[in-house]
């Protein structure tokens, strides 16, 4: 393979390392204690976000892995270390401290495809931005992960007014909105394929992504 040299940034974009599926057996490696607890139970501002992951046949996906990355309530996206805080004596991951908000969570789906996240509502990451949680989905059978976003329902109108989302029909836009179920509890289901398929997104910002890299809708 190419041996990129260190010092000078490459003039031409280096070809990227391809993605491969996470497979079925990541559980003893990637999962960690308290992965979905960005704040401790009982935190007065905590909200619970939960849902199911479904495949194209409407069956739950029991081996999906979800990752979340978000701004803190003030909108800061600096993050903080400590998502995988270790006990130095045992080497075991013991969960985040109760003070710093790391902004990162990792939640494996349960056997019934259900997942739960306890977090704080993200703030606007720039003035007037619509706040959201970035969600990354991995699964056996998925050769390349999928990005999507979770918005709380109070931001529905602002989201619909965002230019990047304006072209989405309402039923597609709705897949990016969590549903309020109770005080501080929201539901967000993901559908990998077919009817009510979740809107997934990508970030073609780099100089290296030729236009048209994304598949043409409906071209399969």
């Amino acid at each position: 393979m190419t041996e990129p040299t260190a010092a000078a940034p490459a003039a031409m974009p280096l070809p990227p390392t391809p993605s491969q599926t996470v497979g079925p057996f990541y559980g003893y490696a990637l999962s960690f204690a308290g992965g979905g607890d960005l704040v401790p139970a009982g935190h007065p501002e905590a909200l619970t976000l939960h849902g199911y992951v479904f495949d194209g046949a409407g069956e739950p996906v029991p081996d999906a892995l979800l990752e979340f990355w978000q701004a803190d309530p003030a909108g800061a996206t600096a993050g903080a270390p400590g998502s995988l805080r270790h006990d130095p004596a045992t080497g075991q991951v013991v969960g985040r401290d109760t003070v710093r908000f790391t902004g990162f969570a990792r939640v494996p789906a349960d056997a019934d495809g259900h997942w739960t996240l306890r977090t704080l509502a993200p703030g606007p990451h720039r003035p007037a931005a619509v706040p959201y949680l970035a969600l990354l989905l991995f699964a056996r059978g998925l050769l390349h992960h999928l990005h999507t976003r979770v918005h709380l329902p109070e931001h529905a109108e602002a989201l619909a007014a965002e230019p990047e989302f304006a072209a989405l029909p309402p039923e597609r836009l709705n897949t990016l909105l969590a549903v309020r179920e109770a005080e501080r509890r929201y539901r967000f289901d993901l559908r990998l394929q077919g009817e009510k398929e979740t809107v997934f997104c990508d970030f073609p910002l780099g100089p290296h992504q030729p236009p048209g890299a994304a598949p043409v809708p409906g071209a399969r």
Binding site: D55, G56, A57, E59, V61, W69, Q70, A71, T77, A78, G79, S83, T102, G103, F104, P122, H125, R126, A129, Y132, A134, A139, R140, G141, L142, L143, L146, H147, E164, F165, L168, L192, Q193, G194, E197, T198, V199, F200, C201, D202, F203, P204, L205, A214, P215, V216, P217, G218, R220
Partner: peptide
């Protein structure tokens, strides 16, 4: 049954949260 049929929605906001990371 585990791949979306629709193409991903391209997002070009240079301040997107996804352009920072944990």
């Amino acid at each position: 049954l585990r791949h979306p049929l629709a193409a991903p929605l391209p997002l070009r906001d240079p301040e997107a949260v996804e352009l920072r990371g944990p």
